[in-house]
């Protein structure tokens, strides 16, 4: 083992260990942090961002922990040795490097972050509009005058939620869709996403809203476009039979 702490060999060994650990940590992190299925376009975009984050975390974690453990093992005091460590008070070049390099990483991630944000919040001309109403403790949905206790949305179309509440703050979250937005009394908030996998999901309130916050859930169904039209027409008919009798112009 090299004697001096500034011997190159120490750094070569540690760097090799960091490389190996980074790969292992990356695999491990993605195993213990399993994201739900990717049911929206946003999930694809956001998961890619999360993936880059996790890889960076794996590297930085390995970097710090390997150097720490290496020091603990190699630079521990040996029995009978009562000397002090080597006297060096710092190294300005190193300090500048580990200030500037993280700064560059921060700028890269910020740039990537801004692009992702623009991507997941973009609007499209033909959005399916659902009015969402949150209340203590439940949800209701409105499709151009048609009320529903469950949210049904067509697959592969951009959905725009126009959300309102009158009592307290709630928050709209379907983990499989990834995106989240609070509902605020006195203000309409908007949330957009594009579901890409048909199926049944659960909408949950993510902002503490009182006693039954935990059970403020609502069923969500993502269906094909034709099923959606059919469902909407049926609901409309159920709620207003007069319209159906009036003629074909009501769908």
């Amino acid at each position: 083992m090299p004697k001096s702490a500034t011997d190159k060999r120490h750094f070569i060994i540690a760097a090799a260990l960091v490389a190996v650990t980074t790969v292992l940590m990356d695999i491990l992190l993605k195993a213990v942090l399993p994201l739900p299925i990717q049911a929206s376009l946003e999930a694809l975009t956001i998961d890619a961002l999360i993936g880059w984050h996790l890889s960076l975390i794996a590297f930085l974690f390995s970097l710090i922990v390997v150097f720490m453990l290496y020091s603990i093992v190699v630079f521990r005091k040996r029995p009978g040795d009562n000397s002090d460590g080597e006297h060096f008070e710092g190294n300005t070049t190193l300090e500048i490097i580990w200030t500037v390099v993280p700064l560059i990483a921060v700028i890269i991630f910020a740039f990537y972050g801004i692009n992702t944000l623009a991507e997941v919040t973009r609007s499209e001309p033909n959005e399916v509009v659902v009015k969402v109403n949150g209340f203590q403790w439940g949800w209701s949905f409105e499709y151009d005058g048609v009320l529903s206790p469950e949210m049904v949305i067509p697959v592969d179309q951009r959905v725009r939620l126009e959300m309102n509440t009158r009592d307290v703050i709630h928050s709209f979250w379907i983990p499989e869709m990834r995106v989240k937005q609070d509902l605020v009394p006195g203000q309409e908030t908007i949330l957009r996403f594009t579901p890409i996998v048909t199926g049944e999901y659960t909408l949950a309130c993510a902002e503490l809203c009182g006693r039954s916050h935990w059970s403020m859930l609502a069923p969500v169904r993502v269906v094909s476009a034709s099923e959606f039209d059919q469902w909407l027409a049926q609901r409309r008919a159920e709620q207003n039979p007069a319209l159906v009798q009036a003629g074909p112009d009501t769908e």
Partner: peptide, 14 residues
């Protein structure tokens, strides 16, 4: 940082 970049926070927030 994963909570700081807005898009990933939209999933992880709360």
């Amino acid at each position: 940082p994963i909570l700081a970049t807005v898009a990933s926070d939209l999933h992880l927030h709360d």
